[in-house]
Design a protein around this nucleic acid. Structure first.
Lengths: 343, 343
DNA sequence: TTTCCTAATGATACCGGTGTCAAGGACGAA
DNA sequence: TTCGTCCTTGACACCGGTATCATTAGGAAA
């Protein structure tokens, strides 16, 4: 039933240590021996026991994915990307949803790391921005890779993967400007989040580059929720749109969907009377009416890259230093909520 | 840094085996000893090493969650529910997304079970309905708990948790009938899925109980997607609604959202000219316009129950046989897509 | 108090790998 | 051929727990 390293060793006519060498790709194994062992592995369909490896080895074969993100689509994307690399490399994935607001979140995380002998962590936003968490991990000498909103602006040389929300917001804003919009409002996501700051900054810079004065009145500071989008749009467009707003940018797709909802309540035609845009290209952004113009980020590639980077760290990197950061820029997806021609 | 069972034993002044007994709640440990050990555990903040336990023990401390479901919300709910029980019981969760259509899916699953020494599996629909998979697991003598659409109709006495889609569909249909609808169409989900059959059956029974002849013309057989909802609604309502349909039930919320979308395209007012209902109460069903009437299923409770049931099996059940099945019935949630008063 | 039985505890092998270090073998140089 | 060196390989301890079985201690009965 279950095949151990000894079975393989016996069949291949070598010692178990040699089998161990082969499956770990260690050097100084003669090719002939290597082939014999591999043949035996294949014949017996041998799978190394993870528990044994984790117990015996200095480093473990498990990494953790930590998130505190209400967006199910995003989380699933991250999981699947990381998981696919894990399967390739023979690692196990331990998922760790948590709540940063929770007082004992860090204790929980430590417990999980100890119990499962975690070799490294992939941290997703907004958790990846919490400096106190990072400090703690550094103190524990824990490997980690962060996925962050930003432009490669991190001072330390830790492993980061950036999502350039700034550039994407700039692009969305430019798109609206090109359509002739001048009075563009923005509904922000959670105040604490880096993505909020970045997206806002991109929006403001695009306005500035087009000689348009950004106005605080056109800003609604909410959070990344549908309800916030509804509330923000109602507020911004109140008094029969006294501010003369012709476009609303949502901090993410939820917000945009909320704004769409509010516009519907107020009998405002989209996109004719008002353009609305989102961010992230969640699946439901194609299911609204009209479909949402948004920025698409390649979560699968991002998460796979994160995992790869982490593996190179845990395995004791040699010359991977150069590849330590990378910036992904979400790309503009134009749909009917901003441009009637694409509806 | 890392605390082992020996450290605890030394501090408590007992042998490591006694510590092992205490943390596993084995009988025949004197209360005084028990307290001493627990004190030491607490003082050192001891965490048993999972890898060691898995390696040494006969049963392991890891269970798997297997799913082939495109609905991110559903999957996350399942994960979180199972995970919360796992944390309580000191188990590890190995997630296993897969694709049943994939030819080597079963091999992959087996590999994962062997590698991670999985003690048991939680199977979610539609995977949980695949008899060949079940047979294979039985053959391997693997513990599992299935979450299934059904009414407790399983012949064998394996552990099942049923979601009574039949009753829920019956309730939705009754709701529409009460509102005066007589010509109610139904857009089915994937043909292969049990939930499709069950929901359809509930719908048909409700019609029959109200002396309404179910008509094949009012049925659209699609799949559980937004696009299918769009297509189904267009087909059913074609020729200026020649069939005189006044309500459309969607097999799930995606389909309903698609139907909503199509109605919008055709300039049909919801719910005044046409009522639409969904199924599952996904988060986005509150974000459509109007909000969707649907059936809410308590996924958190379902998944937690599944995990609990599985643990009782893997631990070598004594008298848990009675608790082996349980039926959850989703509850009707009335919103604006069927009833203008609630908009 | 002694005897006996059972409950409580400990000694030790073992799970399936990895790490260390020493031994064996191949091969070029002397 | 002989030696030295480096490349291959294997023996064995060990990771941190659990399982088994022997041993000890405690309490009831004699």
């Amino acid at each position: 039933m279950k095949v151990t390293i000894n079975d393989v060793a016996k069949l291949a006519g070598v010692s178990m240590k040699t089998v161990s060498r082969v499956i770990n790709n260690e050097p100084s194994v003669r090719k002939k021996t290597h082939d014999q062992v591999m043949a035996a592995v294949k014949e017996l369909n041998y799978q190394p026991n993870l528990a044994a490896r984790n117990l015996a080895g200095t480093s473990s074969y498990a990494i953790g994915l930590v998130y505190d993100n209400p967006n199910a689509y995003y989380v699933i994307d991250m999981q699947n990307g990381v998981l696919s690399r894990c399967r390739q490399e023979g690692y196990e994935l331990v998922i760790h949803p948590c709540s940063y607001a929770d007082s004992d979140m860090k204790t929980e995380l430590k417990t999980m790391i100890r119990r499962s002998r975690i070799a490294g962590l992939v941290l997703t936003p907004p958790l990846s921005e919490q400096q106190d968490l990072i400090d703690e991990l550094d103190e524990m000498n824990m490997h980690y890779v962060r996925i962050l909103s930003g432009r490669g602006d991190n001072k330390d040389n830790s492993a980061c993967i950036y999502v350039n929300d700034y550039a994407a917001a700039y692009e969305i804003t430019s798109h609206l400007l090109q359509l002739g919009h001048k009075n563009i409002a923005f509904i922000c996501g959670d105040q604490g989040h880096k993505s909020t700051t970045e997206r806002l900054a991109g929006y403001q810079q695009a306005l500035a580059d087009n000689q348009i004065q950004a106005s605080e009145a056109l800003l609604f500071r909410g959070d990344y929720s549908f309800e916030s989008g509804v509330k923000g749009a109602k507020e911004l467009l109140k008094n029969d749109n006294a501010l003369g707003i012709t476009a609303v940018m949502g901090g993410n797709d939820e917000i945009a969907a909320g704004a769409l909802f509010a516009a519907r309540l107020m009998n405002i035609a989209i996109p004719d009377e008002l353009a609305i845009t989102g961010f992230e290209d969640s699946p439901f952004s194609k299911q609204t009416w009209p479909k949402l113009t948004t920025a698409h980020q390649n979560n699968d590639e991002i998460s796979q890259h994160a995992a790869r980077l982490l593996f190179s760290k845990t395995r004791g990197a040699r010359n991977q230093d150069k590849d330590i950061t990378r910036i992904f820029t979400p790309s503009l997806v134009i749909r009917g909520s901003s441009d009637a021609k694409t509806a």
